[in-house]
Computed example of a mutant assay.
Amino acid sequence: MTASVRQQLAFVRPIPRHLVHRASVAEVYLTDAVAEGKDRFLVAAQWPRDHALYHPDGNGCVDPLLFVETIRQALVYLAHEFYEVPLTHRFVGRDMDFEITDPGLFKVGAVPLPIVLEVAWAWVDHRPPQRCGMRIEAVLTVGDVPCGRGSLRVVAVDEKRYGLLRRRGGRPAGAAGTGGPAGVAGAGRAVQAERLPAHRVGRLRAKDSVLKSVGRPGEWDLELDLGHAILFDHPTDHVPLMVLLEGFRQLGYLQTSEGGAAVPHTLTGVSMDCLAFAELDAPIRLVMTQHRLPADAGSPELLCVEAVQSGVLLSTVSMSWTADRSAPVAAPGLV
């Protein structure tokens, strides 16, 4: 990377929201992007010091899912702005992963964090113009210092092929569930009281909890609220990748924070595969398939979870949760 290319990046205002498939300007984190060479880019973003859902943790560090959302926005923006993928194409996530290599640089300071992604672009299973398969690898830098890496693979298809994909999954394109602001999609009744309390899943607001206990060890239901202004920023005919990831994250927090954990844990790595569309109007079960405790004090806890709907495996994820021994230990029951 050359310093002159980096200096071209602007952090003045967010890019147009439609170029990252967001309805709310407040949820746009990208501010600029420049080409550094063939299929290589620098992408600028600014992370908020606080956020209703992606708020800093108890040690004052940025929520790692802001990193994931920034990678998602970077791929979508580059696809439209630099590779002429039509705005009418539908984007379908295939897999993503990330790891945080220097958590110390995630500290929230006196001003919003300006960050830069060093992005490498690759075409994967690419059959234009109807089907565009793409993948990005991104290195996260704060103040020119690398502190994380991640990747995302998607396929973008025209409306006709999207309809074929949806019908193959048993749902016509454009069909949507009927969930509302206070209920589970398709349940037809308010169930807010059945959600796990926000503090048990690492969130601050009751409506941000997306887990519901089903009374069986190692299993939870994903609680959908189509009126949630961040998780469902705009109408959709299926459950977005970021909503599934939020459910996985909250389950990981629940497992690593309860049972008298000596120190708090931070999500430092994820590998996620998306195998089928998650529908809005049928229960989604999260099933923990493995929970491996650290072999030594410096090793992370590993959790493996599956999302299942109507007998169909939707997604699998493995998560690394690392003990943050520099953080103060909260009193039991407090956040």
Results as ranks from 00 to 15, higher is better:
244 L>S: 05
284 I>H: 11
294 P>D: 03
218 G>F: 08
255 Q>E: 12
227 G>R: 10
273 D>F: 00
296 D>Q: 11
302 L>C: 05
251 L>K: 04
254 L>H: 11
249 R>E: 14
270 V>E: 12
298 G>D: 13
251 L>F: 07
279 E>I: 05
291 H>K: 09
294 P>Y: 04
254 L>Y: 13
269 G>N: 09
283 P>R: 12
272 M>T: 15
273 D>E: 04
304 C>D: 11
254 L>M: 11
245 L>H: 03
246 E>H: 12
247 G>E: 09
272 M>I: 09
295 A>N: 05
297 A>V: 13
293 L>G: 06
226 L>P: 02
294 P>Q: 04
285 R>G: 03
235 P>V: 07
226 L>V: 06
243 V>K: 01
242 M>I: 03
256 T>I: 03
233 D>V: 02
306 E>D: 15
244 L>K: 03
302 L>T: 08
298 G>L: 08
278 A>R: 02
218 G>H: 08
275 L>R: 02
276 A>W: 01
281 D>G: 10
253 Y>D: 09
228 H>G: 06
249 R>K: 14
257 S>W: 02
250 Q>T: 13
220 W>Q: 10
297 A>G: 09
304 C>W: 06
255 Q>F: 06
248 F>W: 07
216 R>K: 09
266 T>R: 15
298 G>K: 06
268 T>G: 12
250 Q>P: 12
283 P>E: 13
217 P>G: 01
246 E>C: 13
254 L>V: 06
239 V>T: 03
303 L>P: 01
228 H>W: 07
235 P>K: 05
219 E>N: 06
286 L>P: 09
305 V>K: 01
222 L>G: 13
245 L>S: 04
224 L>G: 11
265 H>Q: 08
255 Q>M: 13
246 E>S: 11
227 G>V: 10
282 A>N: 08
293 L>Y: 08
299 S>G: 06
